[in-house]
Each structure stands twice: as structure tokens, then as C-alpha cells.
């Protein structure tokens, strides 16, 4: 289990928002926050409408970690980016830096009084005793310690949302893309979503494999 990753298959996501609801219920996420969000591109345009479910991407070079003034972010051995709510001062810098809007505040108020930041934990709890009440109240369920995957992915009705070890999830997705007569060379991740010049790299990759011409 090197790196835990989410992967959402845009060809399968039907914008049911089941993952959002499941996450809110399982982790008892505070009011006004959705740790997971479903975006629909070109809503209603036949043949072009695509949906994606996105939460924290658990980046290996996380911007939230780089800007946090109190250094409260850390990465677990499984590559999950977590934060310590005891240290968090609620300044909001992580939410400015995050490309995916993953860190959010429980409520907004005057004088920047917004409580502690809340984010997707990959259902891995936080820095409290595993399975304890304190961990549940602060961070939500620790399903990883129970040998389970994040609930959003496990209950996804179309299996658009996959979670787990990056290599194995990529294999599942590649198998699907091959069945769709592609080559699966490019799967979602930091480079596709946020990297620089990813478009050129994708085009080059597509041209080399010849898969795009089919």
C-alpha cells in the first residue's frame, strides 16, 4: 500500500451526489461543508455533459502543507494528507492555496471567526486514538483502521469513484479504458488536473501510442 488515491471516472459518474451524502453521513461533517463535491461540465448538452466527483486529492506535494502557518498538515505512511485540528488556527490559507477547494470552514463569521478547517480524511480519521470518540468528533470515521475503504467510493452506485492504492486503482481504470478502445495511458492525477504543460504532454503521449487515432 504505497499511495492511497481517489479516482473518478468521468464516463461513469452520473451526478447522483451519493458520495457527497455518504461522506456527510458517515463522518458527520459540520453544517455548510461538503468534503466531496460533484461538478458537472456542460450540464444538459447532449454528448458533452460530464460529471466528476472531487475531494481532497491527497497530493504528494500538497500546497496546503506549504502555506500552513502552523505546519499542522502531515502525510501518513499510506500517503493520506491529514491535519491536526488542535494546531489549526483557522486562517484559511490552505483553502486559498488548494486547487480543489478541499479544505473548508465550518461556518463563516465576522472577524474571520471560522473555527477549524475541515477536510476529507480519506476516511482515515486524524491524530487521535484510532476509533475513539474524540477522533470521530473532530475528523470523522476511521474506516482505514477497520480495513475498509472510504465510504464515498465503496458505495458509489456506478463504481465511477474508485479509492485505494494508486497502482491497483489505476489498473482497474486502465482495464476499463482499454475496453472503451483507449489505451488508458493518462489517468487523472496531479499532472492532468493542476500541472503545467500537461496538455502538451497528454497530446504527445496520445500521438505516440496512436491510441487517439482510433
Amino acid at each position: 500500500m504505497a499511495r492511497m488515491k481517489f479516482l473518478c471516472d468521468a464516463e461513469r459518474c452520473i451526478e447522483c451526489n451519493g458520495c457527497v451524502t455518504a461522506c456527510k453521513n458517515e463522518n458527520e461533517v459540520p453544517w455548510g461543508i461538503s468534503r466531496r463535491r460533484v461538478v458537472t461540465i456542460a450540464d444538459g448538452v447532449i454528448g458533452k455533459e460530464k460529471s466528476l466527483s472531487v475531494a481532497c486529492m491527497h497530493c504528494s506535494d500538497a500546497p496546503c502543507m506549504a502555506v500552513c502557518p502552523v505546519d499542522c498538515f502531515y502525510r501518513t505512511e499510506e500517503g493520506v494528507v491529514l491535519h491536526d485540528k488542535d494546531l489549526c488556527i483557522g486562517c484559511g490559507y490552505c483553502s486559498y492555496a488548494c486547487p480543489f477547494g478541499a479544505p473548508q470552514f465550518p461556518q463563516e463569521g465576522a472577524f474571520g471567526q471560522r473555527g477549524k478547517m475541515d477536510k476529507c480524511t480519506f476516511c482515515a480519521g486524524g491524530p487521535e486514538e484510532d476509533g475513539s470518540q474524540a477522533e470521530f468528533e473532530k475528523y470523522g470515521r476511521n474506516r482505514l483502521a477497520e480495513g475498509k475503504l472510504p465510504l464515498c467510493a465503496e458505495m458509489c452506485s456506478t463504481k465511477a469513484l474508485l479509492a485505494g492504492d494508486a497502482a491497483e486503482v489505476a489498473n482497474i481504470f486502465r482495464e476499463r479504458v482499454v475496453r472503451r478502445s483507449g489505451n488508458g495511458a493518462d489517468i487523472s492525477g496531479w499532472n492532468t488536473a493542476y500541472g503545467k504543460g500537461s496538455l502538451e504532454a497528454d497530446m504527445k503521449k496520445g500521438a505516440e501510442s496512436g491510441g487517439g487515432a482510433k
Binding site: I41, L52, G182, A185, D186, I187, S188, D202, G212
Partner: peptide
């Protein structure tokens, strides 16, 4: 130009971005 893979997430993420 048909250079971009169909069927994988590249297009969707690019549009989202």
C-alpha cells in the same frame, strides 16, 4: 485533431480545470 484520448479522464479534467 483527434490527438486527445477518448474514454479516459483527461478531457473531463481539462474542461473542469
Amino acid at each position: 485533431a483527434g490527438l486527445v484520448q477518448p474514454g479516459n479522464n483527461a478531457n473531463a479534467f481539462r474542461e473542469a480545470r
